[in-house]
C-alpha cells in the first residue's frame, strides 16, 4: 500500500519537473537520519523559480528538517547523515567541495522566532554585507536603506537606525530579519514558520510582504497554518512521517487532493 503511494508521489514530482521551465532546487532520493531516526525518506521535489512553495504537515513530519537541508543548516545538528542528491541551479550542493557559505549567501533564511542580533537595526542589516567583505560606508548605507524599504520597514525605523533591534516589536523584528536576509541579495528565501510567534496583524503584514517578494525571489515556506499556505503559495507539498505524500498546485491540493491522508489533514482530522 505504501509503496503504491510512494510511486504516486514520485510520478507527481516527475510530472511537475517536466511541466516547469525552471527549477531552482531539485532533490532526488533525499534521505536524512538523526542518529538512528530516519527523518526524511526518499524526498523527490523540485522548487520553482520565483514561486512560493509551501510545505505543510503535522509537527515532526520533517518539514523543517527538509527546509534546513536546502541550505545545509541541518548539519549543525550533531549526528546527522544525508544521502541522495540536492541540486541548486543544477549544482550538486551536497558535494564535498561545495562551499556552504557560498550556498547560504545565495539562499537566505528566516527563522521561526525573530532572531535579530544584539546589535543596532543598522548593524543587523549591515552584518551580511560586512562579512562578505563590503566595507564602504556609502554602499552599506544604501544597502541598509534598500533592504529596509523592500521589507516595508524603512518608514518605521529610519529615524532610529542606530537603536537596538531588540526595541522593535515582534512583527518588526521578523521583518528586520527578512530585510537582513535581503541585504545580501539571495536568490531563494527559506522561511521556517516565520509567523508562528507573531500576532495576527503582524502575520498579515508578513504575508503581504511575501506576496511582494515573490516577484523577485523564489520562496520556500514551512507553515503550520494551512490557511496561510492557501493564501500565499503557488505550490504546496504535504509531508507526513518524513515522506512527501502529495505535491501539487496549491489550489488543487486544497480543493481536490488525490491522497486520503492529505484530505484528512487539510480538513483537520489530525495534525
Amino acid at each position: 500500500m505504501s509503496t503504491v503511494v510512494q510511486n504516486n508521489t514520485q510520478k507527481l514530482s516527475v510530472v511537475n519537473f517536466n511541466t516547469q521551465q525552471q527549477a531552482v532546487y531539485q532533490t532526488e532520493k533525499l534521505n536524512l537520519w538523526y542518529g538512528q531516526v530516519h527523518a526524511l525518506k526518499n524526498i523527490d521535489l523540485s522548487i520553482g523559480y520565483k514561486e512560493v512553495t509551501a510545505i505543510i504537515g503535522p509537527s515532526g513530519c520533517g518539514k523543517s528538517t527538509f527546509l534546513k537541508t536546502l541550505n545545509r543548516m541541518v548539519e549543525l545538528v550533531p549526528g546527522v547523515r544525508i544521502s541522495g542528491e540536492i541540486t541548486y541551479n543544477k549544482t550538486d550542493i551536497l558535494h564535498e567541495s561545495f562551499s556552504v557559505e557560498e550556498l547560504r549567501t545565495r539562499v537566505g533564511m528566516v527563522f521561526q522566532k525573530p532572531n535579530p542580533f544584539p546589535k543596532s537595526i543598522y548593524g543587523n542589516i549591515a552584518y551580511g554585507p560586512k562579512i562578505h567583505g563590503i566595507r564602504n560606508k556609502e554602499i552599506l548605507n544604501s544597502i541598509v536603506e534598500n533592504s529596509l524599504r523592500q521589507a516595508y520597514l524603512w518608514d518605521e525605523v529610519k529615524d532610529r537606525l542606530h537603536q537596538s533591534a531588540h526595541e522593535l516589536s515582534g512583527g518588526q523584528q521578523q521583518r528586520l530579519c527578512i530585510a537582513r536576509c535581503l541585504a545580501i541579495e539571495p536568490d531563494v528565501i527559506l522561511m521556517d514558520e516565520p509567523t508562528s510567534a507573531l500576532d495576527p496583524n503582524s502575520t498579515r503584514q508578513i504575508e503581504e510582504l511575501i506576496k511582494e517578494l515573490k516577484k523577485d525571489y523564489s520562496i520556500v515556506i514551512v507553515t503550520h497554518n494551512m490557511q496561510q499556505a492557501a493564501r500565499i503559495s503557488d505550490k504546496t507539498a504535504f509531508f507526513l512521517n518524513g515522506e512527501i505524500i502529495e505535491y501539487d498546485q496549491t489550489n488543487r491540493i486544497f480543493t481536490q487532493p488525490t491522497d486520503q491522508r492529505t484530505e484528512d489533514y487539510i480538513n483537520g482530522r489530525f495534525g
Partner: peptide, 11 residues
Amino acid sequence: DVNVRALINQQ
C-alpha cells in the same frame, strides 16, 4: 545604485 551580488563576488 548598488549591485550587492556583484560586489560580493568581487571579494
